[in-house]
Amino acid sequence: MDEALRRAMLVFWRWGYSEASIDRLTEGTGLGRGSLYGTFGDKSALFRKSLLRYAETYHPLYERALSGPHPSPEAVMAAYLRVALNRIADPAVPDGCLLTMSAAQLQALDAEGQAMVRAMIDSLRAMLEQALRAAGAGEQDAAELALCTLATNKSLAVLSRSGFSGEDLATVAAATARVARRPPPLLR
């Protein structure tokens, strides 16, 4: 069951909720329709379990990266984005990010799936804000920098699916982290 769930997660990650047909899910998991439904419930339930599996796999990596201590807010942002870059570079998983793909298709999800996606994004944002404050950012700066870092993370996922090179993605991540050193005039 655990392997089938991992494989279902990869199908949703590669195709998104809307394009992850039951045929793709049965092919990807190796389960027949009856076994798929009997084990996981309907497509929405399987998606939510897959999303939870994704969070259980990747959110601890972000937690470790943010646990610090970090000498500056810039270091916090760089550590967080490094996790995203490493995930994107992993040839064993699809390009992008299941959470990003799910956020982009939010309207296709049921209310419970929508709430899960939003809660997971909010959790990442809260982790970032806490780590940024611990690294010396004031409350407003921590909130702004967390949002900027989170938006960059989601942008990196989209750019990776669009074929941008790892070098291009690293350039975006590094430029974003430097914002903490010298916030642009728009934020001040």
Rank of each mutant, 00 (worst) to 15 (best):
R118I: 15
S72P: 05
A126K: 14
R48V: 03
M101E: 05
Q107W: 00
D95L: 14
Q140D: 12
H70W: 10
L85T: 05
S50I: 00
R125D: 14
A146E: 01
N86W: 09
L66R: 00
A75I: 05
A115M: 11
G138C: 05
F164C: 01
G138K: 02
V117C: 11
L106D: 02
A75L: 06
S102G: 08
G113Q: 03
L156F: 03
M116F: 14
K154S: 10
A111T: 09
A170S: 14
A143M: 01
T152I: 01
V117N: 09
A173K: 08
M77I: 14
S102K: 07
A119S: 12
A151D: 07
C148N: 00
A157V: 04
L61I: 06
L98R: 11
L46C: 10
R82A: 15
R178F: 06
L51V: 08
A157T: 04
A126D: 13
M120Q: 15
E144H: 06
S44V: 03
D90G: 07
A103P: 02
A174V: 00
R133D: 04
L132D: 01
V93K: 03
S67L: 12
Q105Y: 00
L85D: 04
I121W: 11
V158E: 00
P94D: 02
L46F: 08
V76K: 13
L124P: 00
I88D: 03
F40I: 05
R125G: 08
N86V: 15
R64S: 14
R87I: 15
G113L: 07
S67T: 08
A151K: 07
A137W: 01
E74H: 11
R87V: 15
S44W: 06
L109K: 04
A103L: 13
A79K: 03
Q105N: 11
G113V: 12
S123K: 13
